[in-house]
Design a protein around this nucleic acid. Structure first.
Length: 308
DNA sequence: TACACGTGGGA
DNA sequence: TTCCCAAGTGT
């Protein structure tokens, strides 16, 4: 039995109700091109839409091209990233900018394979750039898309782990026309973000409620979702975050090593955080100082002694 | 495959 | 207060 046509109602709904976000405006595309889309997608990796808008504007005002970013030290990218979270994304975006400059003459590539080969770009981001920046026809599958499809088509509340099948399934419901397919990709993500949410879905306003297998089945498994996220308070991640915040806030991005989160309650955790940041390239140690990455170091691991 | 990786706002 | 989560990627 054929799948119900999801594209027609989703595309119509999106055209009438989509949020007016900066990266959806024509002026944004004409000014920043694929670079603007690429930066927005990096920032949107695991960070809520509302928190991205301001920092994205500031980032593109400072670095309107990949070459402009690549010309700076990675420290500048990490600092400009500020409190968006997952600062390794800033480092990877900086590396990707250098790769775009070196391998693609400073132009964000259009091919999915070339995009995936860049630092920090995976299955989702590569297709998002190819589709939303260049208008090509590919399935774009994020967590929202997977939830919408599993509910509408399988009648289950929550998608399983990501798989190749997700791409095949999305490809199967994409309209033939490139531009329509791009809207369908955006519309499915948008529906998952604002209507078909993990909790409290707004089925009363859903444009595909009539075709939803999950609704028809009486909303089974509404409760339990995914694996619980590890506790943040007291975690290594929190310690890393505190170290990096101190470096971002410090003049010249440098702090005396023995002054780095000196009052952190767990000495071993504090040392572990510093070592792991250095291993990740998010910090460097030299001459008794810990500082944001200059780009000069080449993977040398430096042990940083604790206080006292 | 499962886990690590930040941060701040809402329930 | 505590817990949940938000357009993923790399290992």
């Amino acid at each position: 039995m054929p799948e119900p046509d999801l594209a027609t109602p989703l595309v119509r709904w999106y055209r009438a109700h989509a949020r007016d976000l900066p990266w959806r405006r024509a002026a944004f595309h004409s000014r920043f091109g694929g670079w603007g889309v690429l930066v927005s997608e990096f920032m949107l990796q695991q960070t809520p839409t509302g928190r991205v808008i301001g920092p994205l504007d500031a980032w593109l005002a400072r670095w309107p091209t990949p070459a402009a970013l690549a010309a700076e030290a990675p420290a500048e990218a990490v600092r400009q990233w500020a409190n968006l979270g997952y600062p390794r994304r800033a480092l990877r975006l900086h590396r990707a900018a250098g790769q775009i400059r070196d391998r693609h003459a400073g132009i964000v590539p259009r091919q999915v394979e070339a995009l995936i080969a860049l630092d920090g770009i995976g299955d989702y981001t590569a297709r998002a750039v190819a589709v939303f920046a260049y208008g090509d026809r590919h399935p774009v599958v994020d967590t929202n898309t997977r939830r919408v499809l599993v509910r509408a088509c399988d009648g289950r509340a929550h998608p399983g782990p990501p798989s190749r099948r997700d791409l095949d399934r999305m490809a199967a419901v994409l309209p033939a026309d490139d531009a329509e397919a791009a809207v369908m990709n955006a519309a499915t993500m948008e529906l998952g973000a604002v209507v078909c949410t993990v909790r409290s879905p707004r089925c009363d306003i859903c444009p595909i409620a009539h075709a939803c297998a999950w609704r028809a089945a009486g909303y089974p498994d509404t409760g339990d979702a995914r694996r619980k996220q590890a506790r943040y308070t007291g975690s290594d991640r929190q310690a890393r975050g505190a170290v990096l915040k101190q470096l971002r806030d410090a003049a010249a991005g440098a702090v005396r090593q023995d002054a780095v989160i000196a009052d952190w309650p767990d000495r071993h955790q504090r040392d572990r955080a510093i070592d792991s940041l250095i291993a990740d390239g998010l910090a460097e140690a030299s001459e008794g100082m810990l500082h944001l990455p200059t780009g000069a170091a080449r993977g040398a691991r430096v042990h940083v002694p604790g206080v006292g």
